[in-house]
Design a binder for these strands. Structure first.
Length: 418
RNA sequence: GUGAGUGUAGCUCAGUUGGUUAGAGCUCCUGACUGUGGCUCAGGAGGCCGGGGGUUCGAAUCCCCUCACUCACCCCA
């Protein structure tokens, strides 16, 4: 084979595409009910947009970005996530001049140069939502509830909702110091990954799956104990509101975010059926990001959901079967021409109609009707054209109904049956 | 970036200690059944056995290299 998709990229073909449509449609309806508007952003930004927001030392920026020079010598990057682009657009178009909360959602491809793995691709699709301008934890509860509703409505069950607070600029450093003090004394006993994390991202050690590390980190200073009053009140209220909204969740103080811009609330939805890539959706608050992008101080909160994580979970649940309302089976050339015209008239009424353009035995045409899951067939031959009468046969229950060779009447029968 | 596994038909996979022209099931096309489907039967189409090199009278099979894919680590949605 001469050409193939690049590593970690994939073609999305029918019938899988109908799952995508199902998810996108369902999400769009729920977004609408919460007042979220769609925005479409470019898939490329100036590299600085991501470096500044995601964090220079994060793995994403350090080794996973598709960064290159355009012909004008500018460093540009294929977006590895949506929030940074969104905040750039928010500031650029002065969206803060609209009454808060301003609520937006987006969908589209993201790019990260990673080794592909089950449920992990280099080009992957996210549906994300961002709500701006409100600091109150009621907004946190609302957006988490919305996410829960979306996942539920598309048909996913048995997901784990976890939340925590990772503090703010004031209190987070205190916790980090306390954590490093605690871990530092016995660092040699940890796995090599954890020893490396101690310098790069000590919080990650709390997430390590190596049994020895789990044992060693017992008794480490909990994040939630180090929250400043403001962060603690915020988190307490969020818990109250989530209970009020009956969102099923649990607190996981070891939840870690890979991006630097998060503050206070962090949340994650995971599944046990995704191998090692358990995250289905995740998000959090980012109260200082707009200011860092040069806008007025504006709090924000958002999440992103990974399509490639959701779809495999859905494949077991959702049934995909799709076929035309009608297949026209002509027996000779004259009938074929008549059928061609009839098909157009029916399609003009919005019906999905197929016609066999090549004349083969009636038997094989009927077989084809089965294969393409046609719901009804009509046979067109001399008899039908001379008598101007046809039979609409249901392929599902074999019921035959006589009709005039007339698009209106045929359409009425098809609509009655669907 | 690190480690392991797998590459044979469109798909799922057989292929014995190396031995004629590489097989099966599903799918696709045709017919049995000449104007009514799903079953059955028969026939047909479809292969650089991932690629290159080596050993051998002879390689899908053994050896070396390479490429691709998959899974896991890492990281993350």
């Amino acid at each position: 084979m001469k050409h193939k998709t690049l590593k970690g990229l994939q073609d999305i073909l029918p019938p899988d595409i109908s799952i995508w449509h199902h998810i996108e449609k369902t999400a769009a309806n729920i977004f609408k009910s919460y007042g979220y508007h769609e925005i479409r952003l470019p898939i490329m930004e100036s590299t600085e947009v991501f470096k500044r927001s995601i964090g220079e030392t994060s793995d994403i920026v350090e080794k996973e970005m598709y960064t290159f020079q355009d012909k004008g010598g500018r460093s540009v990057t294929l977006r590895p996530e949506g929030t940074a682009s969104f905040v750039r657009a928010y500031v650029e178009h002065h969206l803060h001049n609209n009454p808060p909360p301003q609520k937006y959602y987006y969908t589209g491809p993201m790019f990260r140069y990673e080794r592909p793995q089950a449920f992990r691709y280099r080009q992957f699709y996210q549906i994300g939502a961002e709500a701006m301008g409100i600091e109150d934890p009621k907004l946190d509860a609302e957006i988490i509830s919305m996410l829960s509703r979306i996942l539920d409505s598309i048909g996913l069950k048995g997901l784990n909702f976890e939340i925590t607070s990772i503090g703010c600029k004031e209190c987070r450093p205190d916790h980090k110091i306390a954590l490093k003090n605690f871990l530092g004394s016995k660092l040699d006993a940890f796995c090599s990954d954890c020893r490396r994390r101690y310098d790069t991202n000590p919080l990650r050690i709390l997430d390590c799956k190596v049994p020895a590390c789990i044992e060693l980190r017992k008794g480490s200073p909990p994040v939630l104990d180090y929250l400043c009053k403001e962060c603690k009140d915020h988190f307490d209220s969020l818990n109250k509101y989530l209970k009020l909204l009956k969102v099923p969740y649990r607190v996981n103080p070891n939840l870690v975010r890979g991006l630097d811009y998060y503050t206070k609330t962090a949340f994650e939805v995971s599944s046990e059926n995704l191998g090692s890539q358990s995250a289905v959706a995740a998000g959090g608050r980012y109260d200082s990001m707009v200011k860092e992008f040069g806008g007025p101080p504006t709090p924000g909160i958002g999440f992103a959901m990974g399509m490639e994580r959701v779809i495999p979970l859905l494949k077991d649940v959702i049934e995909i079967s799709d076929g035309p309302e009608l297949l026209i089976c002509p027996l000779d050339n004259a009938a074929s021409e008549k059928g061609l015209h009839l098909a157009e008239l029916l399609r003009a009424k919005g019906l999905w109609v197929e016609i066999n353009h090549e004349i083969t035995s009636l038997k094989s045409q009927m077989r084809k009707a089965n294969r393409i899951s046609a719901k009804n067939v009509i046979v067109l031959g001399d008899d039908e054209i001379n008598s101007h009468k046809i039979v609409v046969k249901s392929m599902i229950d074999k019921v035959e109904k006589e009709s005039k060779l007339d698009a209106d009447q045929i359409a009425a029968i098809l609509q009655q049956r669907s």
